[in-house]
Design a protein around this nucleic acid. Structure first.
Lengths: 346, 346
DNA sequence: TTGTAGGCGTTATCAA
DNA sequence: TTGATAACGCCTACAA
């Protein structure tokens, strides 16, 4: 394998000159550049990235961290889609992606420590934000460049992050349900340790209280962000003496589970109960009925997070930024107006 | 940031000794090991992976290559799922994943060349196999360790790969359709440059010919492996004077598109037309009606490919292997027996 | 404009 | 059992 020295020899220059040619240093004469480049071609020379990284202290790679249940997480199309966005933006800036994975929280923590201490990446994108996250603490202490996709649990102004306004989005969809006549609205959320769950719950609560509707604890259920999660939740809710007529589900995949369970129980959507959810993954359009959901622009979330981390890698002194990606409620067939007359009858 | 030298100084040994302690070299006395380890702890030392890579000529990372339309490919749950498998197996062996991406075929080719020449990875997993693939050629010429998920277009015995028996699987599902009385069976395939498409087409053809049914060119349609792809195909087929009564669709995502289009056109599944497809992604279960499909064990495909590449990295001289992951037809509600009497009537 | 030399943090070889 | 020393391949003062 040809090295810089071989090229130097062939072009009859010093290795440093070759190095400068690679960096396209303007102080090298065009004639020399020409000669060196020819030598590189004829030897099939390619710079060794590892060696370069070592000398430069930079790897041109960014690390991606999935939530601790990464195993399962990947089943939620949210993650592939953010990664697709990250991938796109990273590529534009010539950065590569590096993923370390693990099953338990410990494993993934160790993986990140290795990425960071081992200097395998220049920066990190966290694809989740959870309450009292050890990783966030670690990265901050190390002063290692990172951005969060989502809202940091604390120190919101000191951590660069890319997020939706989940509070607002959740408030909006809940208001939508209220506007069309629903009064018994339940919330099915994911892991309460995830900030996104909290935000969506708060938005829901705000809308409910604003409308002067009672905020009942029995109407709040939490399950994992997975299809199976939704199913448990449904059983609980519809065992209630006064079951809800509308559901705010914090994630499309869960909503799909909810739909399935509802179907099994003979509860019709949207005739008997309306459902709204979040993310607008492909399945939301595909489900039966198609889901009214909040499009949170997952892809863009990914793009912006990559741009952000690259920015903070290249200009480390800049202050932390917050980027809010716009959302949009996509209305489909999972909601139906609740006729108050009909309600009285029941 | 502490280096091996700092540790050496603190422990009052030579750097080389520290290095040996890291490698847990048995020829270092326990006393010294102890001292060195304490020094490492107290300095918060972590080995620098880049430096180690340079000295070792190994990175403990494996590169993942998505098909050239990687951008879109990621939308097909197949890829996240293989990656999940790869990820799992790679983690077990302490390998990290490295992804370079690109939109065009050129970009991705260059990306791989960089990975390889720049020595950023120890081996590569190709997540597709296409006819006359430039990358395969390149990797073989470089004698760089790689495995293909899928069947190599040529030199099948010289390239380690992990695949399903797609020919057989396709033959099986087609035979299933024939057994339940279908005679007009069409095939909707993906890109004909993909070996997997070819295999599935051949299996279909074999079954059709074995049964003595006519093999009509009009019944063979090719589209991209995407939801939209399926839709075009349907229009073509059902514009025929003798439209098919059953469809073999080469990919679940396409099948979903097919279903959607069929629905729009008022053609009922499975009453008017039966549909089978491949992969058994989550959506297949979710679609309306749920799809009869071939479960190809995507996750396992990923695991095995990772194990394989690690194997060939660590034991480079071993001969090429082929690993066939078993498949299984999962029968759901998209197929219906075709009553021959009814057929006569029509 | 170009060359020399030292360093980036490890590992590996050879002595001791 | 341990220590010097020379790689690994590239970058960058500093000199020329």
């Amino acid at each position: 394998m040809a090295t810089i020295k071989d090229v130097a020899k062939l072009a009859k220059v010093a290795p440093s000159t070759v190095s400068r040619v690679i960096a396209n240093n303007p102080r090298i004469s065009d004639r020399t550049k020409e000669r060196v480049r020819e030598a590189m071609k004829s030897l099939g020379y390619h710079p060794n990235f590892i060696a370069r990284s070592l000398a430069n202290q930079s790897t041109q790679a960014i690390g991606i961290v999935l939530p601790s249940s990464a195993d399962k997480a990947f089943q939620n199309p949210f993650f592939p889609e953010v990664i697709r966005g990250i991938s796109k933006a990273a590529h534009q800036k010539q950065y590569a992606l590096y993923m370390s994975t693990g099953e338990t929280e410990e494993e993934i923590y160790d993986g990140v420590v290795h990425m960071v201490e081992g200097k395998r990446v220049d920066g990190i994108v966290l694809l989740y934000s959870s309450v009292n996250d050890k990783l966030t603490l670690f990265l901050r202490k190390k002063e290692f460049p990172f951005v969060i996709v989502g809202k940091p649990f604390k120190d919101v102004n000191e951590i660069t992050h890319v997020d939706n306004d989940n509070y607002r989005a959740s408030k909006e969809v809940t208001e939508h349900l209220i506007e069309i006549g629903h009064e018994q609205i339940a919330f099915i959320g994911g892991d309460l340790n995830l900030v996104v769950t909290i935000d969506r719950l708060l938005g829901y609560e705000k809308a409910v209280r604003n409308a002067g509707l009672p905020y009942k604890d029995e109407y709040i259920v939490h399950e994992e962000f997975l299809k199976e999660g939704g199913q448990e939740a449904v059983k609980e809710l519809f065992g209630l003496s006064e079951p809800p007529t509308a559901l705010v589900v914090a994630d499309d995949l869960m909503a799909v589970g909810v739909l399935k369970m509802l179907f099994k129980m003979g509860i019709r959507v949207p005739e008997d109960v309306s459902v709204v959810s979040f993310n607008n993954i492909m399945m939301a359009e595909l489900s039966q009925p198609p889901l009214t959901t909040v499009d949170i622009n997952i892809f863009q979330l990914g793009c912006e997070s990559a741009r952000s981390i690259i920015q903070t890698i290249e200009y480390p002194m800049e202050p932390a930024r917050r980027i809010i990606i716009p959302h949009k409620v996509v209305k489909r067939q999972s909601c139906k107006a609740r006729d108050t007359a009909e309600l009285k009858e029941a």
